[in-house]
Write a protein that binds this DNA or RNA. Sequence first.
RNA 1: GGGUGGUUAGCUCAGUUGGUUAGAGCGCCUGCCUUACAAGCAGGAGGUCGCAGGUUCGAGCCCUGCACUACCCACCA
Length: 822
Amino acid sequence: MPHELPKAYEPGAIETRWAEYWVKEKLFSQPTPAADDKRPVFTLLLPPPNVTGFLHMGHMFEQTQMDIIVRWHRMRGFVTLWLPGTDHAGIATQLMVERQLATEGKKRAELGREKFIERVWEWKRHYGGRILDQMKRLGASVDWDREYFTMDENLSRAVREVFVRLYEEGLIYRAKYIVNWCPRCETAISDLEVKHEDVAGKLWEIRYPVVGSDEFITVATTRPETMLGDSAIAVNEKDERYKHLHGKKVLLPLMNREIPIITDELAQPEFGTGAVKVTPAHDPNDFQAGLRNNLPQIDVMDEHGRMNQNAGVYAGLDRYAARKRVLEDLAAGNFLVGEKDHALSIGKCDRCGTVVEPRLSTQWFIKIKPMADRAAAAVESGEITIVPENYRTIYLNWMHNIHDWCISRQLWWGHRIPAWHCSCGEIIVARETPAKCTKCGKSELKQDTDVLDTWFSSGLLPFTTLGWPEKTRDLEVFYPNALMITGFDILFFWLARMIMFGCHFMQGHEQDAAVKAAGGDPLAKNDSVPFRHVYIHMLVRDADRQKMSKTKGNVVDPIDVIGKYGTDATRFTLAAMSSPGTDVAFNESRTDGYRAFANKIWNAARFMFMNVDRVDPGMRPSSISEFDTSTLEDRWILSRFNRVAQEVNDALQIYRFDDAANRIYEFFWGDFCDWYIELSKPRLLGDDEKLVRTACVNLVNLFEASLRLLHPVMPFITEELWYAIYDGKPPLKSIALAAFPQAEKSQIDLAAETDMAILQDLIVSVRNLRAELKVEQKAKVPIQVFTEDVAIRSLIEQNRGAVERLANVEQITFAETSLAKL
RNA sequence: GGGUGGUUAGCUCAGUUGGUUAGAGCGCCUGCCUUACAAGCAGGAGGUCGCAGGUUCGAGCCCUGCACUACCCACCA
């Protein structure tokens, strides 16, 4: 077939065609390897996008990096599993559906739990697959046959199994505790889900009259409405100012309740007046102080952030309205003695932005310390390595200062907690719905209404997606994952939890011996870890380094960019711009440049086909060994190729996607196109049929190998041209299954590189001289070269043709003096 | 309050263990439709490497301080 390619590369149709082909042919489905399979294994779990999602640049960035690594491993002969799925994303999805309902003027409560959940499933069916379809367009080479959803029945069963086991081990407990509460979402949220924001607030000073005296004690607060729930005033034992008041009481203004003056470390003499109000039900520090001093916990607010009946006349008021009224009333009663500006940081709900209220409630917790210690050790010992390295310290600091994890959420969307309450007070934690109470035998049991934090189930994915708790062959082969690629923003939410759960539940796990022998990592001392290496990527920002956000309107939609420049160019941009530890300022001008690169590749192919078709239309690349190395430029380009192959492999080994991409770019454009193709022209245009043929064989071989080298970064154009080279009948169904170029140091021909560098220097300096002397562009001129070096003379002598052509000169002679001239 | 990263060409960024004239893309200037590619080719201009000290034969790189900037963590009433 004559290879008639259009003059310019148009990625659109070509990319969609291959994207569909890869999925249709199930090219990336990875069956479980047989017992005698001796190939090394590479497993990678795709961080499951939320079902709320649409694909944004961050996803594309992450997936490009993963796809490069995955394709690279596959081409190097690894049994490669890249496992895709989506996350039910409890609170986030519930919020989206609530918003959708709001546009219909409906509320969640009106629908009731069952109907609401049905609505969420509808949402999931509608939006859940969207991001996966977009991933297909990106060419993500995941195993679509293994796609999962975190609420699939098998995964849900695994969640219950984990909960029950942890409960039985005493690591899950239920307690009344002060937690972060979002009054809008009406649920507890974990510390991580609270985002702190610095605001200019006020500090109000309130004086409480001491009972039985005309003295007052003054305290300061940023949340005056909570004084309604005060149960003591604390002073420091050593504080001389208050020693005479120890054991006395104050009358709580507005509520007219007598509360004790206690001594507690909560009060620091240096701070403010040295006296502090204690409100155990509304502040975490006060809560602890309350426990230490056996104080009553007076809860004055409800789940909506409104004052309740304990707040007396303020009952029913919203917390901010109550604050206003309390301050007015305090002022009227002459209890308010000061109001100062005060910078404070307030916690807001990560999801909806509502100011979080510390709230006393009964929740389920994980006693996290034992798992955290093991998870810290896994990183400290090197069983898990983290790149960039500074995240290691961040991770360890967090692990070492960890608090118990509140895992219950008062939401409707998520994994229901497998606990059943009996009217007798007994709580039964079980894998399946129990028939009757284990204590009193009653059969009317009510399942706990709470659901689990969404990160509870995602923390289990490295093993639950492989069939756990069954002892599956998949688990044996594919666990642990080789790598985890994810963003720093979910380091604690997800990564930390996966390590804790993995180490805990996979304790004693040994990867299949054959697999281990083939691809085992000597760093890993124990296979319980969920993955051996972690690569943390940074954020994609806009060209001005601003965070992309819908409100700012600076979101760059990857689908738009792809439409404009092609997926390959966009992928190349993201790869070339991703240097570890630095955010990517996504700049379309770069993408435009890489679109040109794709076009360059395309046209190099056109040039090659033009010549090949002329001499031998049936010519195919055979093995690289048939590459003819009789001339300097052939030896040189082969050496350059081997060098870049080695460099690309080295770069990918340490996740330097930028280095890998840049090295290929420089090689292909700079060495292959600018020099090698130009150098091959004299041969191709000459009359010597044998030389023409040799030049063609070399071009085809080198080009085919370059495509394989390029493939992980630019999968589409390489697939298209690879098929073209093989005339639509390639030896394998996809270049993605062909071998990735590897090279040894011995394959680098230093002599050829040095000699070529000399010739290149010569040609460049002649060109410069021509420009300097303003010699007519087309005019061939004779030159004299001055050199005393015999070797260089003979080098030029042997490559006279190339020099003459590329420098546009003729009659090269050698001068005896340094007065070389045109 | 603690911690981390960044500061290099007009713009966006590389620069591995300190070692000749500090690189790339885009933009800009000059000349070219040369038997793939004008999305191209050949050439060119442009940098006191944030500031101030220090170590060294030698510093963009190491040390100290400062400034600016971004981010992470934190229960300071």
